[in-house]
Design a protein around this nucleic acid. Structure first.
Lengths: 257, 257
DNA sequence: CGAGGGATTGAGATTCATCAATCTATGTGG
DNA sequence: CCACATAGATTGATGAATCTCAATCCCTCG
């Protein structure tokens, strides 16, 4: 990626966090790495960056010098058509990887944009093959995270291909709700911060923002859930998951450790 | 997987093919493995199997003792809803992997079914971690194949979420056409064997079989393509790809070798 | 206090699904 | 080799889900 397309990524000069102290390591790439090796693996995390909401992290058809781990915030991964239509492929949350490609020459096949104030850990792509060769824990973990992303992508295909508007929205919100709760270990909460606009939800579920609005109204009237002032409140988790055919267990990362 | 659910997989006792002679190795898991190591890696390919059309290879919610490489034939990978609706996630063709999971304990998150007379190479799941640890070429190749499957899955999401019926069908058929031509190196052919029913196409594109029928009729009348007696004939490749927003380059496996 | 982006609602058009019937190709048993 | 059975393909008619266009409202921010 040429440096001018990086203008949105602001390197954190001071107060970078240390991998040894990382509160979300159990979710991320260095889960499973021996404590004594963490200082060494951290060398491959060359920088942390902050990005403002709605700013691009990288763009389809361009190459990227980094792969990232989300440390804090929400990121939308999406593809666009020439017509301007946009499909959000997944929402990356703390611990999730962004922009890994085994082929360093290949250009990105999707774009990524911060949805909220976001902090990323950056790993120079060039050094990844070496890291994966020298530390098998990281290599295995990468495979796990890939497999989990794949499962999420496939489930999303099922939803969008075969479910109705209300089922898709129920699925989408259930998934994010459960992922957030797993990340922050707040099992008792019934509401989460939710920075997506109705248009974002539409781009993720394959619906127009107008139909999303009507669908959310229905869900509210059914007493299942409600979104207002960037907060998602779930009033009836079980019914919502059932409506969306969402299985809460599917958000777990099946880890070998 | 309990053995009784394996009844459709018929082990080939005689005339198993050798990895050293494999005509599709450039596409498959052992691409990049040193010639001298192939006899050793082949030990991990414990069996070849044949499966009749429409027979299940493995099923969602069950575990599988094997992961597979498609050696010959067409395989549908799909998920189903309680309502009975089915979403075909991808079509696996010769060289493609099936059923790899990093966590041996985890159950399959999708089902797989042969669409034609199919031959699979079986790799016992239990031995995969050892193979990946001992041969880094295989490990790297697995990562490449995963990344490629991920790209295909994400492109499919874009199609199904954002394109119209005719665009989706055009995309779907273009993709399979180009993949088959790449596999068999028949760049000049304008027709391929195509074992899917119209209902299969519908399950892959998120449409009903009736609407698929009408869409195919339109594509035929537009002079773009035609399916008859299990043969897909492309009359105007460029227009078809353009209509479906399909990029022929996307089917290439970006290989490091 | 004004501007602008998102949210909300209405009306009408379009796409696609559903239901139902017929047709065609393929394979099977007698 | 024929009669029948069956699955897939085709067409028509109708209705529901979702999109598009347009207007208004509301909230936030400068």
């Amino acid at each position: 990626m040429s440096s001018d397309s990086h203008i949105h990524l602001i390197p954190i000069e001071h107060k970078q966090t240390a991998c040894t102290d990382c509160s979300i390591r159990r979710l991320a790439l260095f889960h499973g790495v021996d404590e004594k090796d963490l200082d060494w693996t951290q060398q491959y995390r060359s920088n942390q960056f902050t990005i403002a909401p709605r700013k691009e992290i990288y763009r389809e058809t361009q190459s990227s010098d980094y792969m990232f781990t989300v440390y804090h915030g929400w990121v939308a991964v999406y593809k666009t058509l020439d017509s301007g239509k946009r499909q959000i492929i997944r929402i990356a949350l703390p611990g999730d990887m962004l922009g890994f490609q085994p082929d360093l020459q290949a250009v990105m096949t999707h774009s990524a944009m911060a949805l909220s104030e976001t902090v990323l850990c950056g790993f120079p792509s060039k050094a990844m093959p070496e890291l994966l060769r020298k530390n098998l824990s990281v290599a295995r973990r990468l495979t796990e995270l890939n497999a989990r992303d794949m499962n999420i992508c496939q489930s999303r295909l099922l939803t969008i291909g075969q479910q109705s508007a209300i089922e898709r929205v129920a699925f989408f919100c259930s998934e994010l709700f459960h992922r957030i709760k797993m990340i922050y270990n707040h099992q008792q909460d019934t509401a989460i911060h939710f920075p997506l606009s109705q248009e974002d939800i539409g781009d993720a579920t394959g619906l127009t923002k107008i139909h999303v609005n009507r669908t959310l109204k229905t869900l509210r009237e059914m007493g299942l859930m409600e979104i207002s002032s960037k907060t998602l409140s779930i009033h009836d988790v079980n019914s919502l998951c059932e409506l969306g055919n969402f299985n809460p267990d599917s958000v777990k990362i099946h880890s070998l450790y």
